[in-house]
Design a protein around this nucleic acid. Sequence first.
DNA 1: ACATATCTCTGACTGTAGTCAGACATCTGG
DNA 2: CCAGATGTCTGACTACAGTCAGAGATATGT
Lengths: 290, 290
Amino acid sequence: MSDTAVLRRFNRSYTQRIGALEDSFLGTGRPLGENRLLFEIGASPATTQELRERLGLDSGYLSRLLRALEADGLVEVSPDPADRRRRLVRLTSAGAKTWEELERLSEQRALRLLEPLTARQRVRLTEALGVADLLVRAATVSLETVDPTSAYAREAMDRYYAELDERFPHGFVPDPHTDDDDASLRAPVGAFVVAVSDGRPVAGGGVRDYGHAAEIKRMWVDGGWRGAGLGSRLLRHLESLARGLGHTTVRLDTNETLLDAIAMYDRAGYDRVDRYNDNPYATHFFQKQL
Amino acid sequence: MSDTAVLRRFNRSYTQRIGALEDSFLGTGRPLGENRLLFEIGASPATTQELRERLGLDSGYLSRLLRALEADGLVEVSPDPADRRRRLVRLTSAGAKTWEELERLSEQRALRLLEPLTARQRVRLTEALGVADLLVRAATVSLETVDPTSAYAREAMDRYYAELDERFPHGFVPDPHTDDDDASLRAPVGAFVVAVSDGRPVAGGGVRDYGHAAEIKRMWVDGGWRGAGLGSRLLRHLESLARGLGHTTVRLDTNETLLDAIAMYDRAGYDRVDRYNDNPYATHFFQKQL
DNA sequence: ACATATCTCTGACTGTAGTCAGACATCTGG
DNA sequence: CCAGATGTCTGACTACAGTCAGAGATATGT
């Protein structure tokens, strides 16, 4: 069977058996949409804005769902003191109880599915689903060009800096942040890209103009996502953006402690070149013709 | 992470990503229900009755869906000559074309999911999904006690005989079929059980009375389902039926060429005993105290 | 031949999901 | 302080999925 045939066969049998159960709102008498929202709020209280983002809902629709949950006494909505246009949502104690009930039902359903299997089969299924989960997540990460001042970009860069600070023997202190720096990473001369999964940035990197060539900056991949091919994918994406910006050469610097990054650049066809800047943290320099 | 946590995590991320895509069958401008129906008819033309059964639809709803597909010129509905209350449904040539288009879109979507993955990752994902598919199917197989003259039972036995005929060096010819034989495999003295998946029997076996003990007969597991633990599960089920019939001993015979069956009986706690019948095809005899 | 069962179809509903266009409140940069 | 941007909410819709109660045609057993 071909790859796609396996995937399609799995999809068919899985959604028919498990997905169908999911739809039945878990027998709570509450519509699926409300339950999904309730579950999401329970996982971590948030502003309506974040909820909209995470669940991909229309603002009017979300408002109505919140109103329904509020009417049932399950959630409390209050203005955000920091910005009173925004609203904070959190579960009431009745809501928390209902949330736990949903948890319980969901757990029960999972158990019922596993119950006919032997211990060995459960282990096999669990392992297989774990692998499939990682790879499906990896395959559906979306690469988005964002403004360098956006929350996603800031988080990606902050985590990049934090990682360097941890990896470098004497720590890492980024240059003071400037508006010019931001401008260099947005159109028409550059771009910043984040890989988003479940509304969280899991990788990021920028491309900018640097002396008649493109330079790739601040590439970072979340620790839990190493080995999922995300770095190479992001690198290829940044290269194609560089091409789109009119460049035929792309260069970058990195540090000797970042072994996996160096290996990745080697694999991706980059040549080692002489130092081309005075970045005190850089020890290795790479270049590639597009 | 516990087994259920892995399953639930997978379910969440999978349905969010792939399930969501599945709904977008709307890429065709046709509602999901109509597409599902069209797909089902394309897979094998049928009476409305069968379609209702297979898809679990209300008769009024199905009628309306058919009317819509008919209006689009995709299906033809005609009275069944054998029973003119019934109606036969089949695709028109335009319908067949649309069906192929659905196939193409589905294939494309599967490809798009796999596309970001490297070749090695695809292999890993495909293997994982293959294992998961088998086990999820196995876990949701339903064991049903059926009459030995029913279509399911007949199919299970016929395939059992066919397999023996293929495996035995000199073939296999079953004893002439008798009504007594059927009666021995139904209440109050026996039972015949089939494992059903997607409306097809995938395993089967009977238990009957044999000289103050229960005897398990004609146990068969579909070739594609070996290794899914279905045999052991069916065996345990038959043992519990034997207990319900008032027996404390269960025995069975088998042939030396059926190595996996023999291994299964050993694992299930059966002891090898002397020949207790004159079945010319039997070479190994087992017994177990319940 | 007749009562009864079976099968399909139509009309009349309900509930859920989701979209879109503003109204209104609040924040932010100049 | 004001203009424009941002965030939330309401009203008015649409589409889809599904249910239920008969009506009417056709088969079946006695």
